[in-house]
Design a protein around this nucleic acid. Structure first.
Lengths: 188, 188
DNA sequence: GTCTATACGGTGATAGAC
DNA sequence: GTCTATCACCGTATAGAC
């Protein structure tokens, strides 16, 4: 993994998360990276290749981040709190969304291999929430969990939707208000 | 309001909701409408003008639809159920999202007047949910409502996020599973 | 209101020199 | 690995005839 490739992935990720897959071009990336358009094609032959690399790297990074949260959280409630903070941080200054939400919105423009990777990422995240909610139900640190599998999808939807609302208004306060009911269910 | 203008709004709405604001062009619209690109500019001088007209028309239509749901629902719970069904129908065959969610994702590409209209629409919808949840709390038809204002934003986030998840997977079943916790709170 | 024609820059992508 | 040069096409937008 060369240094330039990593830089392009970093810039590409920021671009997708702020402007969407259709909203940025290799020209934008080249300008930001300080190289020429043609050089990008050496690392990612097509824009579709870049999109796939972006979702795969993001899925791996998020899995690591969630695992770290889980490892350091004494209760299910603390783990859920950590995940909420992760989604909050992904908002930046209210100008970005998490990669999965951003790519879901542009799903119609992506190749099947890319939406497959996106769905695999969503499923892995949902499984993590299911595990955490299950733990929180058992240790009594999260209220209102009936079926952990169903609740997991509901929590994920609320977090991604809260990002959507926050981004429309450009204010992180909207995110906080939209997930307040989630935080209220954490008792310890 | 001419017939062609209405047709262009219909086609533009479908385009934004399936491919996003950046994902369609006047050429696509012209092909679908059976007229030339230049003719579209007569109705909507710029693409930004079209975007504004689309969000404004959608906001008005949704307000009407929600008002109709509210008028015919005997309880807060039935009104909430009607709203969930509205968001479910907006998914089509799993290829579209509601206009607000679609435009929120592309917020960075829109003019301020357009994001202002988008936020006004989101606020109006949130107020509707607040009123419905308040009613459901009073008549006992919706469980788990503490602060109606906070719950309203949470419900809206969950619905929009469920659309995002459903669209990524292209299956309406995902939407149903992501909003199941919401339906479970309706008791009558 | 719709058309043809066109302007002008941006788009992803490729070939081949260094 | 990066560059220059170039490609064919598409993007929004405009002018002016009908």
């Amino acid at each position: 993994m060369t240094e330039t490739r990593t830089l392009l992935l970093d810039l590409g990720e920021k671009a997708v998360r702020t402007r969407g897959y259709a909203g940025f071009s290799y020209a934008d990336l080249a300008r930001d990276a300080g190289i020429r358009k043609a050089s990008i094609h050496h690392h990612f032959p097509t824009k579709a290749d870049l999109a796939l690399a972006l979702i795969e790297r993001f899925a791996a990074m998020l899995a690591d981040a969630l695992a770290a949260v889980e490892a350091s959280a004494p209760t299910g409630g603390r783990a859920l709190e950590g995940a909420i903070d992760l989604y909050r941080d992904a908002l930046g200054d209210g100008e970005t969304m998490c990669m999965c939400a951003a790519m879901s919105a542009d799903a119609a423009l992506l190749e099947i291999r890319t939406t497959d990777a996106l769905n695999a990422a969503n499923k892995a995240i949902a499984r993590w929430f299911e595990r955490i909610l299950s733990k929180g139900k058992e240790d009594g640190s999260i209220a209102g969990v009936d079926e952990p599998e169903t609740s997991a999808l509901a929590v994920l939807a609320q977090l991604q939707g809260a990002q959507l609302l926050a981004r429309a208004s450009g204010s992180i306060e909207v995110f906080d208000r939209a997930v307040a009911t989630l935080r209220d269910r954490i008792t310890s």
